[in-house]
Amino acid sequence: MEVYIDVKNLSFYRGKRAIYDDITLQIPKGKITAVMGPSGVGKTTLLRLIGGQVVQDSGSLTVDGVDIAAASRKELFEARRKMGMLFQSGALFSDMSVFENVALPLQEYTSFDKEMIRDIVLMKLQSVGLRGAADLMPSELSGGMARRAALARAIALDPDLVMYDEPFAGQDPISKGVLVELIQRLNSAANMTSVLVSHDVEESLSIADHVCLLSGGSVILSGTPDEVRSSTDERVVQFLNGLADGPVAFHYPAKDYREQLLERN
């Protein structure tokens, strides 16, 4: 297995709270890796660490051999050019049409002429089913369409790595199905490395080649989807089956319920 992203003994604190406490994980090249875990476990933070938008407090993180935290501004921007990221909200630029959004990375980084850029943009939009929506503004798109348009933008430069931040959250079943198929197709056709951050168990397990389960600031399981399904670890079982009772507490820490109700002011 060739490693694309290598995280070693990484710790990251937000204020005094440890988001990651000494985690180690590897993301293989050319595969779809799903990073899963309950909300608030810092899945999105992992993507931001990979993109160099935040820097870890200790440990190391390399992407394709480049140490992101130690990279100069130029090296970092160079590395980001090979990454595409699909944000949770899509994050389309609201002052540009769908076409301009997808064309922007091409205009910025290639010396293609107008015709060529137009053709590439139309091809990318065709692959996400939005060629007809090229002239619409982001405010005119539904949530699912915005995310697909953002996906077209993320893959405009044919990056080596695509990161998906909760691609399935808030999508209807049809969009979900389309996205699952798209991610799979992109990954196999262009030999990209995909990192998928999600808490949608079924969709993620169905397309992932490799799964990392995070909980409480550490990696509790790393393996194939089958290994995850057959795991007997209490935390994994609780997460996969959506159980309220288990090692991961459903309730935010509070004082005794009965006591609080009986309290007089």
């Binding site: 993109g51 938008q53 980001r80 990454m83 944000f87 994050a91 922007l104 990375p105 910025e108």
Partner: peptide, 17 residues
């Protein structure tokens, strides 16, 4: 609002300042 809707992050991740 561009910051809240991750558009600024999006520029950064695209390698555009």
């Amino acid at each position: 609002l561009m910051k809240a809707t991750e558009q600024l992050s999006s520029y950064e991740m695209m390698g555009i300042d």
